[in-house]
Simulated scan of single mutants.
Amino acid sequence: MPLTASQAARYARHIVLKDMGGVGQQKLSAAHVLVIGAGGLGAPVIAYLAGAGIGRLTIVDPDTVALSNLARQVIFTEADLGQPKAEAAARFVGALNSGLVVEAVSQPFSTLNGAELLRDVDLAIEGTDRFPTKRLIARICAQNQVPLVSGALGQFDGSVTVLAPFLLRESGKAWPDFEALYPLDPMPEDSPPCELAGVLNVLPGIIGTMMANEAIKMIAGFGEPLLGRLLVYSARTAQSRIMEYG
Rank of each mutant, 00 (worst) to 15 (best):
A66C: 12
L96C: 01
G39S: 12
F109A: 09
L112V: 12
A104M: 06
I140L: 12
R130T: 11
G99F: 05
G94H: 13
V105N: 00
V102P: 00
T111G: 15
A79V: 14
V33L: 08
V65T: 06
D80K: 01
T58V: 00
A88C: 08
T64I: 09
G127P: 03
A50I: 01
A89Q: 00
L100D: 04
A79N: 14
Q143I: 15
G127C: 02
G40L: 13
A66K: 08
G51H: 08
L49D: 02
V101M: 07
N113L: 05
A38W: 10
L112H: 12
T64Y: 01
R72C: 12
V93Y: 03
A90C: 10
A52K: 05
P44A: 07
L49T: 01
P44T: 07
L136S: 10
G99A: 00
V74A: 10
R56P: 09
D120V: 02
G37L: 11
T58F: 01
L112D: 15
S150D: 11
L49I: 04
I59K: 05
Y48G: 03
P132K: 05
G151P: 06
P62H: 00
F131S: 04
L112C: 05
Q145W: 08
A88L: 10
A115L: 02
Q83S: 12
G94N: 14
D63P: 02
A50H: 03
S106F: 11
A79I: 13
T111Q: 13
A115D: 01
V149Q: 00
S98T: 03
D61L: 04
N144F: 13
F76M: 00
G127Y: 00
S106H: 13
G37F: 09
R130Y: 01
F109G: 11
R56L: 10
V149Y: 02
D63V: 04
G37H: 07
L70P: 04
V45L: 03
L57W: 00
Q83D: 03
Q143G: 15
Q143S: 13
I36T: 10
F131H: 08
N144I: 14
G127M: 04
V33H: 05
P132W: 04
E78Q: 08
L57F: 01
E87V: 13
